[in-house]
């Protein structure tokens, strides 16, 4: 039933969409019905799959680099007091400068291939990952650190055996946000300049007023984003399985 409910909601929305298109006779180039979109997706399956593979590669590489870079920065800031004053401003600026505004520059530097999109996705997830993990690392239960110190633990052991495991729930929150926004980075990168990928294909179809094909690409992008999110979510749940999961709605 848990899995059925979202499906019912989804099917309901699609029906409303199809009904609206049929009843109001909306021109297909303005808003194609879901059936038309599915039809195009089926017809151009191989073309869409090729573009989807490019975008997927960009998203996954961006996630890997952004997570490594973010986790690394957070660890360096948590471990070295001096590094904090150097890295924190960079972190804030990385968020203050609109990453999308950098897209043209990234294309200029890295060309039309996969690289600038990976860079976009990396930049866009760097902040949430770093901020969440660093926050988690800073908020270690002081009692644990006291206990470890009386046990003769080194600073490195306290970081690796207490502060990092204790920060994993916070890190997971950051990574979930990253999983949700990484596709945005990749697609915006494609819009600015590219020759492949779902974002490129959407712009191309937009120019040719093939709105149904645009929607088909959007549909595949949405499915990819949701699957990536749920896979990462499932992996993170296993990683921090020790954390008691409390549903706020069950508290009264």
């Amino acid at each position: 039933m848990t899995y059925l409910r979202p499906l019912i909601v989804f099917a309901g929305l699609l029906s409303v969409w199809q009904a609206a298109v049929s009843v109001f006779a909306v021109a297909p180039f303005i808003l194609p019905g879901p059936l038309a979109v599915l039809e195009v997706a089926r017809e151009r399956y191989d073309i869409l799959a090729g573009h989807a593979a490019v975008t997927l590669t960009e998203i996954l590489l961006g996630l890997v680099f952004g997570t490594l870079l973010g986790a690394g920065s957070a660890l360096v800031m948590a471990y070295f007091r001096q590094a904090r004053s150097w890295l924190l401003p960079v972190l804030v600026v990385s968020q203050a400068v609109p990453v999308f505004a950098l897209a043209p520059v990234l294309v200029l530097w890295f060309g039309y291939g996969v690289a600038p999109k990976v860079a976009m996705a990396t930049l866009i997830i760097y902040f949430p990952v770093t901020a969440a993990f660093y926050d988690g690392l800073r908020r270690t239960e002081p009692g644990w650190v006291d206990l470890a110190r009386t046990m003769g633990a080194s600073k490195a052991a306290i970081l690796s055996r207490i502060r990092i495991p204790a920060a994993l729930p916070a890190f997971s929150s950051g990574l979930r946000v990253a999983a949700a926004v990484a596709p945005i980075g990749a697609v915006v990168g494609e819009w600015v300049g590219s020759s492949a990928g779902l974002g490129y294909y959407m712009l191309l179809m937009n120019g040719r007023v093939q709105t149904d094909a645009m929607f088909a690409a959007l549909l595949i992008l949405a499915i990819m984003a949701v699957v990536i999110y749920f896979l990462i979510d499932a992996a993170l749940r296993r990683l921090v399985s020790w954390q008691a999961d409390v549903d706020p709605a069950s508290l009264s």
Partner: peptide, 13 residues
């Protein structure tokens, strides 16, 4: 010295 606090300070993981 061994130290024991008011909270059990067990590591939940």
């Amino acid at each position: 010295i061994a130290y024991m606090a008011q909270q059990d300070l067990l590591f939940p993981w």
